[in-house]
Amino acid sequence: MRRLRCAAALLAAAPVLTGCGIQETDVVQAGGPATIQVFPQSSTGMVLFFRSPDGELLPVIRSLEGEFEDPQSPGASTGETLSVLFAGPAERDRAAGLTTGLPELPPGATLRAAPSDRSGVEVTLPIALGRLDDTALRQLVCTTAFSEDPEGLTPVHLRGTDGPLEQANCDADIDLGVQPRPTARPS
């Protein structure tokens, strides 16, 4: 009975509380959303892809330090970028729940990236690729693609100790916002 009286009192007070003498207005436009560049220039940062808590790929920006801080620097090579990827998520990335599907590299291992004789880039890795799951392979492909091209459109050919894989393109659903899209390149 007490609940019924409280509910009735609230219903009776509702018209009084909602009026309050404030006049209705139309929607006021204040401009579009702010835009920022999410992906770094090749000479100021690198884009690495890690596994999010829900199992999807998530790009992480790493600022370049030391010799790469010079604006005239060409930036980190694809091999150097992949070495950072294999080192795994940084402490702040792990705190956010990011993980990797990649193994540790053997001591003294080198990663090589060179233009492919077909198209894109070929990356030679000192690990067996057949043991990696789909997300780990996508980490490699997307990190390589964005290391080679700010739009991540470079075709990637991975070659491991167990042989080559078919050419792949980065399929991560990355929202580049209003970033310019490349035009068709002449053949």
Rank of each mutant, 00 (worst) to 15 (best):
L48W: 00
G79N: 07
T78V: 15
F50G: 00
A76P: 00
S116N: 03
S116E: 02
R131W: 11
A34L: 09
D171K: 09
V28H: 12
G55N: 06
G79M: 09
A13K: 09
D93S: 03
L58A: 12
A8C: 13
L129G: 03
E24M: 07
L10T: 13
P33V: 15
L102I: 02
V84E: 10
R94E: 09
A12S: 09
T18C: 15
A95I: 11
R94F: 03
L111I: 00
Q139A: 12
V47R: 00
A87E: 04
A96P: 02
A145G: 08
L153Y: 10
V178N: 10
F39Y: 06
D134K: 15
C142W: 04
A30R: 14
Q41N: 12
A34M: 10
P53G: 06
R3F: 13
A128Y: 10
L125V: 09
L105G: 01
F49C: 01
G152W: 00
V60G: 08
P40L: 07
A128Q: 14
L105N: 02
D133Y: 03
E56Y: 14
P15N: 06
I174D: 01
A95E: 13
E151A: 13
L82C: 02
L57C: 12
A8D: 13
R181L: 15
L17G: 05
V178E: 05
T183E: 15
Q37E: 15
D173Q: 11
L85Q: 01
A145R: 02
G152V: 00
L64P: 00
T100E: 03
A128H: 12
T35N: 08
A95T: 11
P103A: 01
V123C: 04
P40C: 10
D149E: 05
A109I: 02
Q167N: 14
E56I: 11
G79Q: 09
L58W: 12
L10M: 15
P89G: 04
A8E: 07
A172T: 02
C20Y: 12
G66E: 07
S83G: 08
R112S: 02
A8V: 05
L64W: 00
V60I: 10
T110V: 08
A90C: 03
I36T: 15
A9E: 09
N169Y: 03
T144F: 04
G79E: 01
V38D: 14
E69Q: 11
M1K: 10
V141I: 10
L64K: 00
S116Q: 07
V27E: 09
A87N: 13
A172K: 01
P180K: 11
L132F: 07
S73L: 03
Q23K: 13
A7R: 12
L98N: 00
R185F: 13
P115Q: 10
P89T: 01
Q167M: 11
V28Q: 06
V123K: 03
L129E: 00
T110Y: 06
L4Y: 06
A90K: 12
E65M: 11
I174M: 07
L140T: 00
G75S: 04
S147P: 05
R118E: 12
Q23T: 08
P15C: 11
D117L: 11
L58D: 02
R112T: 05
A8M: 11
L129T: 02
T25N: 01
L48F: 04
V60A: 04
V123I: 08
S42N: 14
Q29V: 13
Q179G: 11
S187R: 13
N169F: 14
L11D: 02
G152S: 13
G32S: 12
P33H: 06
G19R: 07
